[in-house]
């Protein structure tokens, strides 16, 4: 697991969150806000700030209905994020943006200007490659890589069978492999 800290006493934190505890909300938020934001950014959302907050508002106002441990909670949060993302596109009558990533719109920072330039270029290229996949393939790969979910968790989030998720990720990786190989030959 690479995505943020892991809450040790998750059951207790969840119980306090159900009671409306601000401290429990903060713990859950800090645990998952970065992967959720990265997921939304990788899916092409420009106003990540607003949509991430919408996701967590929905999570905290409906956490009383959730039952389960930390792993299902992560899947549940990404299910909400996935649905909010679909609503976001539907409400704006927008399709998945195919435009390349704009580095000047990204206000994130790293420790040095040199590293920042390298990272931004790398992420820009990664988003360009992802944009060449189908929407389902991109969704599955982003949930697997950025959200760090298993095949079964991704299947729950997107509402497909695990076999369909495996097929989508296999085809997506094959497409990326083919593109990278062709670029290497060209270069």
């Amino acid at each position: 697991m690479h995505a943020g800290p892991v809450i040790d006493d998750f059951d207790e934190v969840l119980a306090r969150a159900r009671a409306g505890s601000a401290e429990a909300f903060t713990l859950l938020y800090e645990d998952l806000v970065r992967p959720v934001a990265a997921y939304l950014r990788a899916r092409g959302v420009r106003d990540v700030e607003d949509l991430t907050s919408e996701v967590f508002l929905a999570v905290f106002t409906s956490v009383g209905r959730f039952t389960g441990g930390q792993v299902p909670f992560r899947s549940w949060v990404f299910t909400i994020a996935h649905r909010r993302l679909v609503d976001h596109w539907r409400s704006g009558s927008r399709s998945v943006p195919q435009a390349p990533y704009e580095p000047q719109d990204d206000d994130r920072s790293t420790e040095s200007a040199e590293n920042q330039a390298l990272d931004v270029l790398g992420e820009e290229r990664a988003l360009e490659l992802l944009a060449m996949l189908t929407d389902d393939q991109r969704e599955v790969l982003v949930l697997r890589i950025v959200a760090d979910l298993t095949v079964e968790q991704v299947a729950e989030v997107v509402g497909k069978r695990p076999g369909a998720v495996k097929a989508l990720q296999r085809r997506g990786l094959s497409t990326l492999r083919r593109i990278l190989e062709s670029e290497a030959v060209t270069l």
Binding site: V33, A37, A38, E54, F56, R108, D119, L130, V146
Partner: peptide
């Protein structure tokens, strides 16, 4: 690796 590094970016400000 590049995609996984995006998770380490600073968290967006809450509304």
């Amino acid at each position: 690796a590049t995609m996984r590094r995006t998770v380490d970016a600073p968290a967006p400000r809450p509304t």
